[in-house]
Design a protein around this nucleic acid. Sequence first.
DNA 1: TTGTAAGCGTTATCAA
DNA 2: TTGATAACGCTTACAA
Lengths: 346, 346
Amino acid sequence: MGNITLKELAKMLGLSVSSVSKALNDSHEISVETKRKVQELASAHNYRPNMFGKSLKTGRTNTVAIIIPYLANPFQAQILEGAHQAAYSNNYKLIFMQSREDADKEIELLQSLLSQNIDGILISPSANTSVEFLQEVHQEVPIVLIDRIDFELETHKIGVDNERGAFAATQHLIDMGREHILVLNGKDLGVTQKRTAGHKNALLANQIPFSEDNIIEVDYQLSRQDLVHSLREMLQEKLSKVDKPIGILGNTDILTLSTLAILSEMEICVPEEAAVIGFSNTEAADSLNPALSTVVQPALEMGKLGIEKLVELMNCKNRFQAVTTTTKLDPMLVFRKSTTAQPASS
Amino acid sequence: MGNITLKELAKMLGLSVSSVSKALNDSHEISVETKRKVQELASAHNYRPNMFGKSLKTGRTNTVAIIIPYLANPFQAQILEGAHQAAYSNNYKLIFMQSREDADKEIELLQSLLSQNIDGILISPSANTSVEFLQEVHQEVPIVLIDRIDFELETHKIGVDNERGAFAATQHLIDMGREHILVLNGKDLGVTQKRTAGHKNALLANQIPFSEDNIIEVDYQLSRQDLVHSLREMLQEKLSKVDKPIGILGNTDILTLSTLAILSEMEICVPEEAAVIGFSNTEAADSLNPALSTVVQPALEMGKLGIEKLVELMNCKNRFQAVTTTTKLDPMLVFRKSTTAQPASS
DNA sequence: TTGTAAGCGTTATCAA
DNA sequence: TTGATAACGCTTACAA
């Protein structure tokens, strides 16, 4: 079975292969009448050009790839979604890959992309990716960095202003009358540093002293159950020696959602006794109990913008002389019930 | 720039292209010494075979594709994850695509796959996909159906036993002393029918009369906000005329999570006054308030098994005579706090 | 053990 | 306006 080829069409029409090819590509060299006949027969036989023949000849594939650490992460899935939309409207095919935060796996993926003549790559590198390798790849095919933009690669980068997000969230908690704020961090996560810095700055701007004691750092290597257990213990300890009303800034979904559950167990009312805001892109925020105020990352926009920058680079005659840009998009604050009631009077 | 080719390697080595090709493919026709030289030079120059030349020649790509409706759906993302794992361990590349529940888009995707000489396709078809088209595609390249298996296509199918899942969940609610059970359905969703049937059967098996009045059906076309609003009204109405303790079976995440929030607003205690169990694959179940009992679909296994069946089919000499199987995997019940406390005495 | 040549399905150049 | 031919990078009979 398989697909019908140009050759076969040509034979059926009594034309040459090259004429058929030109007719199907709507070349001006071919008569209107011939074009019509060719195109009719082609669609009657459901002809589809073979990508491999085409790409082998042209050296292009009209395909870009995106590599992210984990597909099953809502934030990253939204990046994908945005990339998908932008690729589609720029007439590129998009292929997805996930590195699982594994630099070796990532190298494998990149190499396989190179042998596929991919036209461009959008990548959110895993934590320990070597810049050198990215550099090498970038010599052959344009790369654009997304989300994880702290790599010394001379190219377009699109990220989120985590510092600003944490600043705004902290300011919001302060505005809601919470001067005592706990921060929930995942140990060694990439975003931790910037978000903590933003938090500190907000305290500073409000003349509130910062204390390491208010940072709760949980080991993200633990199993889910152990992680929750460890979080519970630390929360209980911190809460026992802290004046309410307090505020809590959750820097990851797991930590924030678990904290809501733990507070409920401890019979601490949210938001009256403890206001909670989390960095989160989950749709569930609205349906949580209570509905969770969130710092939302512009994931869709990142994906879109990433592809657009990539297209720009691919269309560049000499991309090594192109002016490269670094864009930091602002997260958006969504206020819901978990922060928006008056504190209980202490 | 670009990549080095066989031809170039051959010239550098003073060998013929075919010898180099054979050497790199570790053919027994080539002397050990030559192989060594060739392979050394190849890796020194970071040679990577060009997929297009290769596939054009061999007609194979070692690539399978998976098409699902929505990437950003945790359940479907887990299917992807499973497929990814199985493809990897079977030495296939996997490319992902999403149809967005749009039959036309899906046709486009399938056609583009056909022109890419993909070796096989795993698909969870959109609701209104035409079987005829799937049939046609299946003539050219093997297809395996996953999750949405109610299509008259003669091939392997892997799905979930939704009826059984709903039966078990209902039985669990009954076991927990809830004889009055509300069911939350999304209107026109594919899973609704089977799950409702399973629910009815469980009632029957326990000599509990079924009443349409206990089915809450929400229009899934509504915006998130309107949907929650409409759900709230219906819940309030039903709950006002129902004896507690009741049980609630949520057939989708949005409905279940929203219900938890609404019940909390209404100051109805879960599980004491209303026990809640939901069909869900979200990791958040553990962190909800209260932790949510769930019927978990074996998404990872589905993805894996789907690829395995596909590989089986691809390796088949004559796949049109192959015996095709339909596998229904059992969902798994996970009991958490939302159903596992004694009902309040009424 | 190595080399030659043909061919996979296209497109592009040049000639008719 | 159409056709013959070469080429893209690779594999594979078959010949040397």
